[in-house]
Design a protein around this nucleic acid. Structure first.
Lengths: 338, 338
DNA sequence: TTGTACGCGTTATCAT
DNA sequence: ATGATAACGCGTACAA
């Protein structure tokens, strides 16, 4: 009786058009190893044979099996991108800049959602580890501590927050708020500038931006009037009457969502003499309330930088003397309405 | 001289804590084959041995190497999701419902952007083919024809548009517009209902919804007043004065973006007696103009359905008699403001 | 410079 | 019911 194995093999060799390194070897009259060497750019192959093999590879559109080389420890050419929420405008902008760069370098980005949960990050990370992903981009959030990330130390870029010994890409929260205030106070001569922010539990959007406001006030002798709430339109709307009690001529908002809420309130009350300034911008804010002054945190630049950085990291085989650094993306003031 | 291979092997066996099926076999006193059988739920293993092996697997938190089993032709457990734009609110909502379902079944979803370009879809698709992805979800758009998709015929779900011989999940554009009009005309007794839509080049959002409006008008003897523009806030804002010329008491908008633009215009002109109705909703529309009547197309339900459908398709080994069907997700009218 | 032989972790076939 | 062994496609130490 003929073993089934042989039958299957025969069928395969006829019907399946999936070429392997072996087939290429046969077709170009060399051994598997040589083909492998050609593929991996081994300098020890003769020019002539290389050309010969390359020709066959091109002709048959051969691509080595990803799974097989993954098994040999070559990495899957996979990069995980863990965002907090898929519908976060800011992260979206950054991610959209990353994707083409990863594609360019033949990496397959796989996007996952943490929903601000540490356990989700852990889950995704172990999934990626199993899959032998090559690198990760993680959008950090309040509560995420670095011990979860240790395995990825030299193959990850952390966004929006700075961790020691990790490569991070941060936004210039302090600079953004300061520039906004600088423009309002020094250029536009506003004296009474209030602030609506986010609770200090949130490190960057909350605490840092608020502190920047306080610091500026102290330096320029402005009496601070600040209210902190949640990260939503509603919060901006609800805090509006409170902050107006101090009769400000300008109000700085920690986020564009808050600015949207505030603007709605001001519009309803016909208080259109008050200048609204916001960290961050959106198409909608710009459309609905075009007079709003805003400063871009540079999510697109951050995304581009992060992707390039990660790829550079992964290309170094062993980077002993590569120091993990935090890059701060400079903010850019919107001058169209100034 | 000791071959390097052995040295490496020795080092690996000591330092690397990565367990393989072999190690589990050794630890539980059986052969690799039996462990494999346990993993793959082969009914031919004795209860006692299964429990023994399972215990070891649990204890050591063993997970079979994805790459290795992928090489054995088990599929990569990868599903491609091709969205048009990463920041499309509607697609986002659908995708967010899909992800947990795919994770649940141990599939790795990889999200890609087509940017409404056919060539991008092609590019992504061939990348996924190379990667031996198991299935695809594609968000269709005007201009995408099915000959690009032929390879994926029985392993894909197409969103938002119906193709013969493919499994599709569509939104009930006609039903949505009709329900909206039904409510306005029959329940709220509006007689003059105008429409702002999208150019008919866009099949679903443009043509279909517009036709539904016209059909309703004809049936109920309403004089149609419609203007078609682009898919943006600005279009809604710009077309507002034109559509107001017919002195309508209610205006139906093809999208929430248009509704947003229209609302802005009406608010500025203090025309708050006019009822705005919209297909689709967003947190923002709801917050800024809560009196807007809207109908949900059910993106979340569509996402959930699509994901489950795809997984069901992939589980059937050979589905000869499975007929490709188009599922239409029912719309749901918002009754909070009725 | 190239070919041979083996190993990676898993599953399938065949023999016990 | 279980074990031994040959594949899968690829990379690489070693011999030639």
């Amino acid at each position: 009786m003929l073993p089934l194995l042989f039958i299957r093999k025969f069928i395969m060799s006829v019907s399946s058009n999936h070429l392997t390194i072996k087939d290429i070897a046969k077709l170009s009259g060399v051994s598997k190893s040589t083909v492998s060497r050609v593929i991996n750019h081994d300098p020890m192959v003769k020019e002539s044979t290389r050309n010969k093999v390359m020709a066959i590879i091109e002709q048959y559109q051969f691509t080595p099996s990803k799974s097989a080389r993954a098994m040999r420890g070559y990495g899957n050419k996979v990069i995980g991108i863990i965002v907090t929420r898929l519908d976060s405008m800011s992260e979206n902008q950054a991610v959209r800049c990353m994707l083409p760069i990863f594609y360019e370098h033949d990496y397959d980005p796989i996007i996952m959602e943490s929903q601000f949960k540490v356990e989700k990050v852990q889950e995704h990370l172990s999934m990626l580890k199993e899959k032998q992903a090559d690198g990760v981009v993680i959008f950090a959030f309040t509560g995420l501590d670095n011990n979860v990330l240790s395995f990825w130390q030299n193959k990850s870029v952390i966004m929006a927050r700075s961790y020691p010994d990790y490569n991070c890409v941060c936004y210039d929260d302090i600079g953004a708020v300061t520039q906004l205030l600088h423009h309002l106070h020094l250029t536009k001569k506003h004296q009474k500038i209030a602030y609506i922010g986010v609770e200090e539990q949130d490190q960057t959007t909350g605490a840092v931006r608020y502190q920047a406001y306080l610091a500026f006030c102290q330096r320029y002798n402005i009496i601070p009037h600040a209210y902190l709430g949640k990260l939503s339109f509603l919060s901006g709307y609800d805090l509006a009457p409170l902050v107006l009690a101090s009769a400000p001529t300008a109000i700085v908002c920690a986020t564009e969502a808050i600015a949207l809420g505030l603007n709605k309130y001001l519009y309803e009350k016909q208080l259109n003499h008050i200048v609204v300034a916001s960290v961050g911008n959106s198409e909608l804010l710009n459309f609905l309330f075009p007079q709003t002054l805003f400063i871009e945190l540079g999510f697109d630049k951050a995304g581009t930088y992060a992707a390039n950085k990660l790829i550079a990291m992964l290309q170094k085989v062993t980077d002993f003397n590569a120091i993990a650094k935090t890059m701060t993306i400079p903010s850019q003031l919107n001058h169209s309405s100034s």
